[in-house]
Design a protein around this nucleic acid. Structure first.
Lengths: 333, 333
DNA sequence: CTGTTAGCGCATTCAG
DNA sequence: CTGAATGCGCTAACAG
């Protein structure tokens, strides 16, 4: 079953069939209809590999993430996939697992499949791999770690504004001793949040207290353990901001263990707004980072580059939004 | 950069280059080495599309899941992807989102890409789509919903044994009034767990009480709401088995709201053992369904069919395992 | 608007 | 063990 059969059935040339399949406007509506009918009658669908080989375009986009097991990513994947499907494109996902060798395999595969673009949503991206992609003129879009240039876009996250909303919310509630549980500092996104915390504190007239900073690992247990350490401080904070929601959820768990009431005795704020945060106990106040927005912008950055290869990469900014739920309140006096 | 260049560089024919790339044994070690060197010198990697077109085999496997946002699936995806990479194969993921039209698009794409096999991990699979795959002789493997046959394997989950371990654990602890929160009954997996619950109860000499059965939705909130309903019963159960971990976590949340102590006043058991269950409060006792095992078996079923196309589909059974943590104990007297 | 033709890059006969 | 030639299914000029 191939394009020839369809052409034969419709009594047309393969070129015309190909044209109508690709929505060329140089086909009369009547012949297009004839083609459609033949396609349906024969249950035909084109061979993607041959298509890519012939045209040089694969209609395939690569999405590189570091850990699909982290709830932040599936939502991102879903968003990206959704938009891609809407545009008749496909996506191939690569899970690097924070492993350099695996990352290389992933990139090589994408190169081999002639992807039309790749979205790099992990900060641990080897420079030489990026270079390799660039040398093949494959459009790229980075999440917060790229430098816009020819064919390279970047989606910037305004961590400063996001963290600032959280801190202002806490300050307006009357909090002064605000702790922070960071992520692993070798991750660019964790570092950015960490820095934003300090700046926001200063901006709000609060002197950062190093004893109120603990490091987590962006997972539940790291958050719990960091909270434990925080509780051993002589000066107990009245509020804690976590670098991501998983960390906050872990912290909440530790607080429950110690029978510390939330938010009465301790306010907790997360970052990301993953789905389950709304179902935490109490429902978590957090700074939402819209995965849908990130995914949509990423796809469009790539798709636009495809339409106009000369287009220079753009820089987008996504603004986080504070979602106030039940884990924050004025401190008990 | 293509195979010709490599051939030229190595002063060999493209056929020989192709052979060594594909690990043919009809190439002398010396010439193979020459090819290797040329490949490295030129930074060559084969064009996957051309490869698939020429050989008819794509080295690509399809994985169909219903909702990547459900924590059960990312772990499955990761497992499948890991094994595939180990075997030098690629995987393309399709997220059907419980939507029939989208499912059709996904299958058509896989067909178009000439996948070497597809793993169907969702129960809502259209019969005509399965038929279409079958007519193209594409090996398939189902998760608990397939009938083994030529090129079709099935991975059976012994829900009966899994649920039975949970019930026996509860019974041995002294529980008699055991509630069950089911999943959405239109899902085959939810139905299977539901049925297993009844059978296990009988097997353990307990008469099922319809008032102690509530329906959830396999999400956190559904579990919470179902638990609320259960608590309004005049006869309060001393233990509850949830159809999956998310449901159990929701139930735990509802119990906390009511200040009901777990496990002293209510034991809770989940099903699946998703990663976060170990970090619930208290850590959830649950029936582990190894995603790694499912994924590995699924991949191998497909991969084996590829090696020997005449191989008849096999049936595998994966046995769940009770993981006892802190959410279960003897009932308070 | 439609048909003819020549590759795309590789795997695979078939010779040697 | 190696090379030359053919075709996979489709798209993209180029004609008409």
């Amino acid at each position: 079953m191939n394009i020839k059969e369809v052409a034969k059935r419709a009594r047309l040339s393969t070129a015309t069939v190909s044209r109508t399949i690709n929505g060329s406007d140089k086909v009369s509506p009547k012949t297009a209809l004839r083609v459609q009918r033949a396609i349906e009658a024969l249950n035909y669908y084109p061979n993607t590999n041959a298509r890519a080989l012939g045209s040089g375009r694969s209609r395939l986009y690569g999405l590189i993430i570091s850990d699909i097991t982290n709830p932040f990513f599936p939502e991102l994947v879903k968003g990206f996939d959704d938009v891609a499907i809407q545009h008749g494109q496909e996506v191939i996902i690569a899970n690097t697992d924070y492993d350099a060798k695996r990352m290389e395999i992933c990139v090589l595969r994408m190169l081999g499949r002639k992807v039309d673009g790749v979205a790099i949503m992990t900060s641990e991206m080897d420079a030489h791999l990026v270079h390799r992609l660039k040398s093949k003129n494959i459009p790229m879009v980075f999440l917060d770690t790229g430098t816009p240039g020819p064919g390279i876009s970047n989606i910037k996250i305004d961590y400063g504004a996001g963290v600032d909303q959280a801190i202002r919310h806490l300050v307006s509630l009357g909090h002064k001793n605000i702790a922070f549980i960071s992520g692993p500092m070798h991750l660019a996104s964790a570092k950015a949040r960490y820095d934003a915390f300090f700046e926001s504190l200063k901006r709000n007239g609060i002197k950062p207290n190093p004893k109120l900073i603990e490091q987590g690992d962006h997972h539940i247990d790291g958050g719990g353990m960091a909270m434990e350490r925080l509780l051993q401080q002589p000066l107990r904070p009245t509020a804690v901001l976590a670098s991501n929601d998983l960390t906050a959820i872990g912290a909440i768990g530790a607080l429950h263990e110690h029978k510390i009431r939330i938010p009465a005795e301790m306010s907790v704020i997360g970052f990301d707004d993953i789905h389950m945060s709304a179902f935490a106990h109490p429902p978590l106040t957090t700074v939402r980072l819209s995965r849908t927005e990130i995914a949509t912008r990423a796809f469009h950055a790539l798709y636009a580059a495809l339409q106009d290869p000369a287009a220079i990469g753009a820089q987008y900014t996504v603004h986080p939004e504070l979602i106030i739920r039940k884990s924050t309140s004025a401190p008990a006096r």
